[in-house]
Amino acid sequence: MKLTINGKETEYAGAKDRPLLWYIREDLKLTGTKYGCGVAACGACTVLVDGVPTRSCSTPASAMEGRKITTIEGLDSKAGKAVQQAWTELDVVQCGWCQSGQILTAAALLTKTPKPTEQQITDGMTGNLCRCATYHRIRGAVARASEIMG
């Protein structure tokens, strides 16, 4: 079966129930997508599936035929670039383990809602856990990214 990841077609022949996360990390060696919980509870494994933030730990790779998957390594949308710039300006990261998921989630939020209210930022981002509690800066950086997008 063929999957499209970061614009490239790959052949998936693994177990039917194997989560996309492990295929991306172990087979494709795209290690920017992180494992945090394995049960859709933290957001560390977030990838975009047809632009929608999706928890790859709880999504079987075999269900992704014909879908466009974007990982942090392939993020190059306008919103994605703005988010990365804002993350740099505010130095959001600490340990960094959650940040691929945060950045992809923020990019999807801003693509859909380029001028989010404070509440929309909270609602859009609160599903992504950060044990380093960089939340304060995440809020600021999403708002800043929205400014950068103009």
């Binding site: 172990e26 795209l30 920017g32 990365q84 383990w97």
Partner: peptide, 28 residues
Amino acid sequence: EKSANTVTGRADTPAKINGTAQYALDYH
């Protein structure tokens, strides 16, 4: 404070926002 003339930001930021930073679990 961070500015163009001094420390321009965390040294580990670039690799941690583009997925290239390598952690123990990433070694393969």
